[in-house]
């Protein structure tokens, strides 16, 4: 097969081609329930794409498929850069390890030799501005700090693709705002490709270069927007607000459709 590239010539980091996913096997507990229907989506290398949708749009299922934790019913998924890193809404840090050791475990599983691990873990903690937190236990960190350690651990996988499953949904507004800045900065520094799932329209417009709206039950690509605003953006920027209003209208329309049936 030819290398996955768009017509524009930019290399592709994630390619979903007519992906379907249903749960429940026929004959085993009723008919199969379609969750994702004919999803075709590319994430270019170095691109930041936000997936937006209401409940039931299969956002998390989609990320699981891209992460290789599940397989599609039909269609194909290509991630040319190898196994992507995944960050969850819950930090999912291991409580029996310190912050630094959590990162070192990711390095170890990636095959980084022992003498290099400590320095690399310290570098990644510095990158998320948690230089002094190496020996901290998970329960000694605040929610925002935990998500930053989780980000550092995801970066430790040295994957070219970072998948994020509503990583800031459980944080308070000020902390979330700070983490938006940090993520935008780190994305610019590392040139990672990011697929970021959220149900928060403003967050999607604040962060993404492209916002993809999914319909619900089953999830389909309903519409997408290119966010032509320069970074660093602020969530309060009028341009962010204007686009958010437009996207919210579409999202509400998608949700209303379900009330009529």
């Amino acid at each position: 097969m030819a290398p996955a590239t768009l017509t524009t010539g930019t290399a592709v980091a994630v390619r979903l081609d007519h992906v379907h996913k249903s749960f429940g096997r026929p004959g085993h507990g009723g008919p199969a329930v379609p969750v994702l229907d004919d999803i075709t989506l590319d994430v270019r290398q170095g691109e930041f794409v936000c997936l937006l949708g209401a409940s039931g749009c299969g956002k998390s299922t989609l990320l699981n498929l891209v992460a290789g934790l599940d397989t599609p019913t039909s269609g194909s998924i290509e991630v040319p850069g190898g196994r992507p890193a995944l960050m969850f809404q819950d930090h999912a840090l291991f409580p029996w390890l310190t912050a630094g050791r959590n990162i070192e475990l990711a390095l170890r599983l990636r095959g980084v030799p022992r003498p290099e691990r400590r320095a690399e873990a310290e570098r990644l903690l510095d990158l998320v501005r948690l230089g002094g937190a190496y020996d901290k236990r998970v329960h000694e960190l605040s929610g925002g700090m935990r998500q930053r350690v989780a980000l550092a651990r995801a970066l430790a996988q040295d994957s070219r693709v970072l998948l994020m499953d509503e990583p800031f949904a459980a944080l308070d507004a000020i902390t979330r705002d700070v983490l938006h800045h940090e993520l935008a900065r780190i994305w610019a520094e590392t040139q990672l490709s990011v697929l970021f799932v959220t149900h928060n329209v403003r967050e999607a417009v604040r962060l993404g270069e492209r916002v993809v709206l999914l319909s619900s039950r089953p999830g389909r690509v309903a519409r997408e927007w290119t966010v032509g605003l320069p970074q660093p953006r602020r969530i309060e920027d009028p341009a962010v607000a204007d686009l958010s209003v437009e996207i919210t209208e579409e999202l509400r329309g998608e949700i209303r459709r379900h009330g009529r049936n």
Binding site: A67, L69, R83, P84, A85, L86, F88, D90, A92, F94, W96, L97, L105, A106, R108, L109, R110, R153, Q157
Partner: peptide, 23 residues
Amino acid sequence: LYLRAGRTLGATGVRGARYVLLP
């Protein structure tokens, strides 16, 4: 969630048991 996180980090099979499940 720990097992899922472990799998995305590459801890599967024996390594999954040693680094995630048993601790």
